Simulated scan of single mutants.
Amino acid sequence: MRSFLIMFVILFGFYNEAYGKGSLDIDMKLKALNKPALKTIKSQDGDIIDCIDIYKQHAFDHPALRNHKIQMKPSVEFGETETKIPNNGSAQQITSQIWSKSGDCPDGTIPEAFIVALGYNFLGARSDLNVWNPPRVQPNDYSTGQIWLLAGVSSDNFESIEAGWMVNPGVFGDYRTRFFISWTSDGYQNTGCINLLCSGFVQTNKNFALGATIEPVSRSSQEQYFISVNVFLDPNNGNWWLNTGINVIGYWPGELFSSLKHSAIAVQWGGEVYSPNMLQKPHTETSMGSGQWADYLYAEACYHTNLRIKDNSLQIKYPKYLNEYADESDCYTTRLYRKTYMSEPYLYFGGPGRSRFCP
Results as ranks from 00 to 15, higher is better:
Gly270Ser: 05
Glu324Ala: 11
Gly289Pro: 06
Cys302Glu: 10
Leu307Gln: 09
Gly270Met: 05
Ala299Ile: 04
Tyr298Leu: 11
Ser263Phe: 15
Val273Leu: 00
Ile265Trp: 08
Val267Arg: 05
Lys281Asn: 14
Met278Ala: 07
Gly289Trp: 02
Asn306Phe: 10
Ser290Thr: 15
Trp269Tyr: 11
His283Cys: 04
Tyr274Trp: 09
Leu322Phe: 09
Met278Trp: 01
Lys317His: 07
Lys317Arg: 06
His283Pro: 01
His304Asn: 03
Ile316Asp: 07
His283Gln: 02
Ile316Gly: 06
Leu314Ala: 11
Glu285Ile: 03
Leu279His: 12
Gly291Cys: 06
Asp295His: 07
Ser263Ala: 10
Ser287Pro: 07
Arg308Trp: 08
Gly270Trp: 05
Glu300His: 10
Tyr298Gln: 05
Asp295Phe: 01
Lys320Ser: 15
Trp293Tyr: 11
Cys302Tyr: 03
Met288Thr: 00
Tyr274Arg: 08
Tyr274Gly: 14
His304Gln: 05
Met288Asp: 00
Asn277Asp: 09
Leu314Lys: 06
Pro319Lys: 11
Pro282Tyr: 13
Ser290Asn: 04
Thr284Pro: 05
Ala264Val: 03
Gly291Trp: 06
Lys317Met: 12
Glu272Ser: 00
Thr286Cys: 01
Ala294His: 12
Lys317Ala: 12
Tyr274Ser: 12
Glu324Met: 08
Thr286Met: 00
Ser287His: 04
Asp295Val: 08
Asn312Gly: 13
Val267Asp: 12
Asn312Pro: 03
Ser263Glu: 05
Asn277Gln: 05
Leu297Ile: 03
Ala299Gln: 14
Glu285Thr: 05
Ser275Asn: 02
Arg308Val: 03
Glu285Val: 02
Glu272Met: 00
Lys317Thr: 10
Leu279Tyr: 14
Gly291Pro: 06
Tyr303Gly: 03
Pro276His: 07
Ala264Cys: 10
Leu322Met: 13
Gly291Ser: 06
Thr284Ser: 13
Tyr296Pro: 01
Gly270Gln: 07
Tyr325Ile: 12
Leu307Ile: 14
Ala266Asp: 15
Ser275Asp: 01
Thr286Trp: 00
Tyr303Trp: 13
Gln315Trp: 13
Val267Cys: 10
Met288Phe: 00
Thr286Ala: 02
Arg308Ala: 15
Asp311Glu: 15
Asp295Gln: 09
Ala294Thr: 04
Gly270Pro: 05
Pro276Lys: 08
Glu272Lys: 00
Gln268Phe: 05
Lys281Leu: 09
Asn323Ser: 12
Arg308Asn: 12
Leu322Lys: 13
Gly271Phe: 01
Gly289Glu: 09
Gln315Tyr: 08
Leu279Gln: 10
Thr284Cys: 08
Ala294Phe: 08
Ala299Asn: 14
Ser287Asn: 08
His283Asp: 02
Val267Ser: 14
Val273Tyr: 00
Ser290Pro: 07
His283Gly: 01
Asn306Thr: 10
Gln268Ala: 07
Asn323Glu: 09
Pro319Glu: 13
Glu300Met: 13
Ala301Thr: 03
Ile309Met: 14
Leu279Arg: 11
Met278Val: 02
Leu314Trp: 04
